[in-house]
């Protein structure tokens, strides 16, 4: 066990894992997190807490993750390379671990051009690959990036992102392989709507033997409306929504129900792909849809893994 997080235990035990996204609010309102946490509780093995997603200022992922912990959830804090340099990243990792966080997902981060502070200066001292390696070295070598020793090391289960739908396609499996080499333990992908392309991607991944070294969780998510489907298909770089899905969403009488049906169909298909270890549900600002999806996908109840303590010295026998 590398970090002993619930997510790691579930995956190690060979269960098909379910993670879900929990987006922190654009405010200091803790209640939003409490409510979303209650919704997700029992419906997933870990929750991803986004880190100022799309470069919008939101509540800190570590702070929100700590609130999720209070509800018994296992947070995966996302950490982007956009806003912090290596000093701040390592400091935040120490802090997150001290607060009980055991999973981190290492990301490049959306460029600030997309967010609500496009005039900000970005950092990119470290890229996502280098962040993965840094977190691994902190855990396994017990060393800071500069080489100095860490007395009590933060032990994280290390996540990476993968996007099979961005270009160049041929490089995508290679990039995932690099992330494994850098030290990633699990990968969550961009939302899968083009299942065919994802199947191709996984085929290459298997040929390269990457799936044996990393747990791969494709991203899935329900679309709310025809308009949202169109927006996603045309305005989000690196997200592919086939026209067939856009049309289904536009024609649907009850778009929300249709969005969930499509999501369930996709889950059904990706589950059958060899090398897929679970799913990552991104119901962005629609966390309430998650329990329904998980239940209808037949993924409930979520496994409860006994935490086996390290074997200790047997107590001295009492004399008879």
């Amino acid at each position: 066990m590398k970090a002993g997080s619930n997510l790691e235990r579930v995956l190690e035990a060979g269960h098909f894992a379910v993670t879900a996204e929990l987006g922190p609010p654009k405010s200091a309102d803790a209640k939003v997190i409490h409510d979303k946490a209650e919704t997700l509780k029992g419906n997933c093995d870990a929750v991803n807490i986004t880190d100022n997603q799309t470069a919008m200022v939101r509540m800190s992922s570590i702070a929100a993750g700590t609130i999720a912990l209070q509800h018994g959830l296992d947070p995966v804090i996302q950490m982007t390379c956009r806003d912090r340099n290596r000093i701040c990243m390592q400091s935040d990792l120490l802090g997150a671990y001290a607060l009980g966080v055991r999973n981190v997902l290492c990301l490049s981060g959306d460029h600030q051009r997309f967010g609500n502070h496009p005039q900000a200066k970005n950092v990119y001292d470290v890229d996502s690959m280098q962040l993965i390696r840094m977190v691994k070295n902190m855990r396994d070598e017990k060393k800071f990036q500069c080489g100095e020793a860490i007395k009590v090391e933060p032990r994280f289960f290390i996540g990476a992102a993968a996007n099979p739908f961005a270009d160049p396609f041929e490089f995508r499996p290679i990039r995932l392989g690099k992330k494994v080499a850098a030290g990633a333990d699990f990968a969550q992908t961009q939302l899968v709507y083009n299942v065919e392309k994802f199947i191709n991607f996984m085929e290459i991944v298997r040929k390269m033997g990457i799936h044996e070294k990393i747990y791969i969780l494709p991203g899935v998510g329900p679309i709310k409306s025809g308009k949202a489907a169109e927006m996603m298909a045309t305005t989000v770089p690196g997200l592919e929504v086939p026209d067939e899905i856009v049309q289904r969403m536009k024609k649907a009488e009850d778009p929300k129900a249709e969005g969930i049906s499509i999501c369930l169909e996709i889950i059904d298909r990706v589950r059958q792909i060899p090398g897929v270890a679970g799913i990552h549900i991104m119901a962005i600002e629609w966390e309430k849809a998650v329990p329904d999806i998980v239940q209808r996908a037949g993924l409930l109840p979520r496994p409860v893994i006994e935490v086996v303590e390290e074997p200790q010295e047997p107590p001295a026998q009492k004399p008879a």
Partner: peptide, 8 residues
């Protein structure tokens, strides 16, 4: 270390 997920 390679293109981000937004390269299209």
């Amino acid at each position: 270390n390679g293109p981000c997920g937004g390269s299209v």
